[in-house]
Design a protein around this nucleic acid. Structure first.
Lengths: 120, 120
DNA sequence: GGGCCCGTTCACCAGTTCTTCACAGCGGTT
DNA sequence: AACCGCTGTGAAGAACTGGTGAACGGGCCC
């Protein structure tokens, strides 16, 4: 039951503040409620922020055990996370897909260029 | 690091005034009678107000020892506390549930506003 | 003994969360 | 074009966690 290696209690990634100890995520000042799985997935990605985390690794970290072929749990939870993150910080994209490899957590502006007149 | 070790005699949280020394709670000017367990639970939550306190931590702080699977004492006492708090300050909600994690003590208006006709 | 208060446990209900499906879209191959 | 592997996405049912009312038992005090 050792919490992953030894990561800091609070991880900062862009405007995300992941309070691993509290099971709490603060995005752009606002608190975002995550379920246990969602939170663990985020932590798993965050612990290797900026780098690709393989699906097998994610599964092992969050679900424990081996990823069975055909298991879509990861995809489903990546989606749930994306929705909540986008909800909190629409201007940023955090979870990037690397087909065939896995996912990478890194803040990136949603829009390449700056639109003066955006949607309200 | 150390938390509960030593805290102020009086904790203020919203309109709550917790007099730890006297084992007394004053809510919105009125005195509220709490049993020992109820009071300790409140103090445990208050000592980390605004943050999620895990069930295991609550159990350790209030009951002492380890939380056995299936033990619902916490739930029951959270309820008792909620009832008394709501009784004293109906306009506020203090104890928030974070499924899978624990509880968080923070004053929040019961109803952001009185929406007569909203959500279909 | 008979109430009372308190803390614990039980049973059932309700709201969430997790898993699994089914189908759609995208590239890359054949 | 047709096919295939991989991921995106929405939905449905299963599995869990927490909410709640009430019963049970131990102390205490009258």
């Amino acid at each position: 039951m050792e919490a992953a290696t030894h990561m800091p209690d609070v991880i900062h990634i862009g405007q995300l503040e992941i309070r691993a100890r509290d099971g709490l995520l603060v995005a752009g000042g606002r608190t975002v409620t995550l379920s246990v799985r969602e939170f663990e997935l985020l932590v798993a990605l965050a612990s290797q922020a900026g780098r690709i985390v393989r699906r097998e690794a994610l599964y092992a970290l969050v679900w424990g055990g081996e990823l069975r072929p055909g298991d879509r749990s990861i995809d489903v939870y990546v989606r749930k996370l994306r929705v909540k993150l986008e909800d909190a910080l629409p201007e940023w994209r955090f979870i990037h897909t690397h087909v065939g490899f896995g996912y990478r957590l890194e803040p990136e502006p949603s829009q390449p260029f700056h639109n003066a007149a955006t949607r309200p």
